[in-house]
Amino acid sequence: MSDWPRVRLHVVTGKGGTGKSTVSAALALALATRGKNVLLCEVEGRQGIARMFDVDPLPYAERRLTTGLPVGEERPGVVHALHIDAESALLEYLAMYYKLGRAGRALDKVGVVEFATTIAPGVRDVLLTGKVFEAVQRNSRNKGATEYDAVVLDAPPTGRITQFLNVSNELAGLAKVGPVRSQADTMMTLFRSPRTAVHLVTVLEEMPVQETADGIADLHANDLPVGGVVVNLVRPQELTPDQLASTDPAVVAADLKGVGLDPAASLVDGLVAEGREHAERRTLERDQRALVGELGVPTYELPRLARGVDLGALYELAGLLRAQGLA
């Protein structure tokens, strides 16, 4: 049923303003069916998950967020959330692998943590992706930790995604050997495997579609697995541009009168003008959709919801993603 049955790590990217956080959240809900555990991660310090699900700001710890999308009679799964910040990830990493209790705190005090997480080449991204990697790779040996059937990462935007995932390359100029380097190489093995898919969110406008095409080429060039393209914020599709263009004001006026509305000229003209405008945009969308179709990857569409995206809308979008096979 899902187009991506083997994928454990779903990375969601997209140009700013296309709704990649919304799509990440909806995808997590859509994956958390039939008792499956899903982890939704964010790495950009925005607390977008907390806002979307209307909960308190998330700490650097996994929290149960909500139940997944109900499908028939089956028990839905659970979506957990994790807000990853590089500083906490570094301290956890130091504590875990190097038993640096006191030294870790000393490092923080003199500014090494700030240094490592801001300036040291690629280290920030390795720390962020490292935590995601750890969550994906968990198994029964990790006592007390939740095992996840899938992890959804609300990732940095399209322009930065390849660099973000290509952690070994980022470290190449710096750490040629050593523990950080070998860790990065292990992570790359997962990111390049069929267990990972990078989905790109776009809207049907010129620049985002162009960026999506560039992003896909970039991912391919770096052997990173391209998932699907999610076309978001699609306008209502009921009428075709041709139908809209050939609207007859007299017919509209008669129809309005027939259902008891006053067919004032301003109303009729307004409706016809709105229809034309919509047709114009639909025609442009159609051109962009054709370009998306040529990208050679599965595509999924989500509607623009006039009322905005609340919790109910997230489930609605999750249902649509599931019906189309992204989850």
Binding site: P236, E238, L239, Q243, L244, T247, V251, V252, D255, L256, G270, L271, V272, E274, G275, H278, R304, A306, R307, G308
Partner: peptide, 20 residues
């Protein structure tokens, strides 16, 4: 298949968007 119904729905959608 009423075209006018479609226009009215578009109008409703647009109005809600603008209100939001």
């Amino acid at each position: 298949t009423s075209l006018t119904a479609g226009l009215l729905r578009l109008h409703a959608d647009q109005t809600r968007l603008v209100e939001r």
